[in-house]
Design a protein around this nucleic acid. Sequence first.
DNA 1: GTAGAGTGTCATTGG
DNA 2: AGCCAATGACACTCT
Length: 590
Amino acid sequence: MGWESHLTAASADIDLIDILWRQDIDLGAGREIFDYSHRQKEQDVDKDVGDGAEQEDTWSGEGAEALARNLLVDGETGESFPAQFPADISSITEAVPSESEPPGLQNNLLSPLLTGTESPFDLEQQWQDLMSIMEMQAMEVNTSTSEILYSAPPGDPLSTNYSLAPNTPINQNVSLHQASLGGCSQDFSLFSPEAESLPVAGSSTLLPLVPSNSTSLNSTFGSTNLAGLFFPPQLNGTANDTAGPELPDPLGGLLDEAMLDEISLMDLAIEEGFNPVQASQLEEEFDSDSGLSLDSSHSPSSLSGSEGSSSSSSSSSSSSSSSSSSSASSSASSSFSEEGAVGYSSDSETLDLEEAEGAVGYQPEYSKFCRMSYQDPSQLSCLPYLEHVGHNHTYNMAPSALDSADLPPPGTLKKGSKEKQADFLDKQMSRDEHRARAMKIPFTNDKIINLPVEEFNELLSKYQLSEAQLSLIRDIRRRGKNKMAAQNCRKRKLDTILNLERDVEDLQRDKARLLREKVEFLRSLRQMKQKVQSLYQEVFGRLRDENGRPYSPSQYALQYAGDGSVLLIPRTLADQQARRQERKPKDRRK
DNA sequence: GTAGAGTGTCATTGG
DNA sequence: AGCCAATGACACTCT
């Protein structure tokens, strides 16, 4: 109760203070000095803003996640479609010189690799189309490029035989290469650069293959060391009967890691707003985070306009006023004579015209200028400071002694009953201009605001001014400078936002490009692996023992030595190496 | 009636 | 110490 009465008394005091304040006892006194509710409102606003932002973030995060789970999105059209696996058919047939192959053996060796190599060519076409679309759209991170890596139709022969099996989890320890070997009808060990280090010298079964014998190998790869190029050390001797598909594959590991990266990339790509819905979500996130509206920067012109900080803000209507105002303010020294008049012309404060015109230092041209600028908004663009003139801040029923004395209360004034022509003209003057006139300040507001300190002081010394006049002049100067500063500040804020948006777009572009390159590398890697496999089978199929019979793939395997030679070793030996290599990466992880 | 944008103003801070 | 620019916060008007 006591507190309430105190509040009542306080509000009465506020009213009284308000009246006194309107009489402009102290022309420089701010109204908020007496505003008791000032801080309370501030706290309420802060609380509301915090809650709103939190909610929005939660929502946008869930939405993007849901989209990422279910749909791919065409970066060009924004159309959503179910995930599909565009088959990546490498040129297996190129790598397999079929004219020299013993038909039976070739079928036996290559059948797992060649299964369905013809049927997916339409899928290959889809892949090529997709890639071309992506190349044309530098900005677009089509999520399908990510999906390619880990979503494939069950019947895809490539994914079944070689890599990226559709049912293979991303982090499962089954590599592309293992999958391909596992699909073979025979168990092969692969070329190994470590074959030289094996105790094969003493093995009578070890048959070194002279490089000259493998003409097809050299014709395909030249003198390239395939071991170094395609098969890191741990690759050797991977597949055997016991190990099965669980053998590690260095390339597979690489791809697994790549695919893991793709998960995050895809999520990011989806969040990046490459379709309109998600774009709007992203924008809303920006809006809520910044606490500022980005509507202006979302206009089509904003992107190009944001190229430079000086021009960025002119691209949007909202920022243009502030930017041009501030840009003019930067050259205020040369144009201040206009600024002072303009800067306060938006305020509408009725004042006795006769008194105003009779005031010392009043300039008719000045008034004319204001009138013109107010009535013809199109001319405001020529004078940046005038762009906001159309804004009628009628709230400033100002703390001017003469104003409050001569005028009815703000409520009645607001109704427009007294809005006559003279009032209309007066509206073009700012509150401080009215005050200055009322106080008979003998020079213009623009001089007050824009003169350098020394000249300003010199000007003041020329006149015999009362304390109230001096106080008002100082306030006018302070407010005028602060007004310009605020305009500059707002312009800078907008520019910063626009620049940040541009940076985000650049980063998105870079990310899209890197993602495309990554997909390309993975694709070529897969192709090379398939070629190597084809060559392996071709070479192995041509080998004959001393009796002219082919070697059994279950008993022998080829290993590729570091010097370019290819060795035929017993499969048991290859299996040992495979196990040895299998342990190394595990130990490394520990 | 309400929300958001735009603007002017004040208080504060740091150069 | 005084001046000034920058900026957050608020009030107010307009749409």
